[in-house]
């Protein structure tokens, strides 16, 4: 069988151990302080449209035990399959991690865990145009002293209502990473969002 010529695969993390640790700390800090923007210091060179922070998150967290759903095209799929060794999920509802570079699947259709095991829920990594602290969404909840503000350019239409429905299912629900270039922020299900 002849196969079309392929581009050589882009590299993963330059230093898989320490770069993954560094990215995880950014992710942990982001999840612990929703709406605070973190920078991934050494993102891998991922094939477009995969951004640096989103690609780093997948390499840090995904492996053979976590099906990943993504909409970033065959080059990104091949790159991820090679570097993370993760199965690619056909349906969004089967995935542990989802990467959306365009319109994400509805949050209500993703794995939300059960009442007894709410941790068996999906994490959505959403690529947006830009992230900035200071104005925009008003966020409150665990991890936030009074209020954090986060301006997100390029979030999907109707997102605030969808998030409110996700938040209302606590302790079940989906957790979200927002990525723009090498920057990331997180919204755990516990965060209340008021559009502003």
């Amino acid at each position: 069988m002849t196969r079309p010529m392929r581009m050589p695969l882009a590299a993963g993390f330059a230093d898989p151990v320490l770069d993954a640790q560094c990215c995880f700390r950014a992710a942990l800090e982001a999840m612990a302080r929703p709406g605070r923007v973190q920078r991934v210091a050494a993102p891998p060179e991922a094939p477009p449209p995969l951004g640096g922070a989103a690609a780093a998150l997948l390499l840090t967290l995904a492996d053979a035990g976590t099906p990943v759903w993504l909409d970033a095209g065959p080059a990104a799929e091949a790159w991820l399959r090679f570097h993370a060794g993760c199965p690619i999920a056909a349906m969004p509802g089967e995935a542990a991690f989802l990467l959306a570079t365009g319109a994400p699947p509805p949050l209500a259709r993703l794995a939300a865990g059960s009442e007894e095991e709410p941790h068996r829920s999906a994490t959505l990594i959403l690529q947006v145009a830009s992230l900035a602290e200071g104005d925009g969404w008003r966020l409150s909840g665990p991890g936030i002293e009074r209020e954090h503000r986060l301006r997100v350019e390029g979030s999907p239409p109707g997102f605030a209502a969808e998030w409110a429905a996700n938040h209302a299912r606590i302790p079940q629900g989906v957790d979200l990473f927002l990525c723009a270039g090498d920057r990331l922020a997180a919204l755990p299900r516990s965060t209340t969002l008021i559009p502003g």
Binding site: V17, A20, F24, T66, G143
Partner: peptide, 28 residues
């Protein structure tokens, strides 16, 4: 390996930690 644990184990623990932070007080 750096930090004694192998990378597969760290990844599994890191995923558990992120879910634990997202659901305060829930045992993962």
């Amino acid at each position: 390996n750096f930090g004694y644990l192998d990378e597969d184990t760290k990844r599994m623990i890191r995923r558990a930690l992120l879910k634990a932070v997202a659901i305060p007080g829930h045992q993962v």
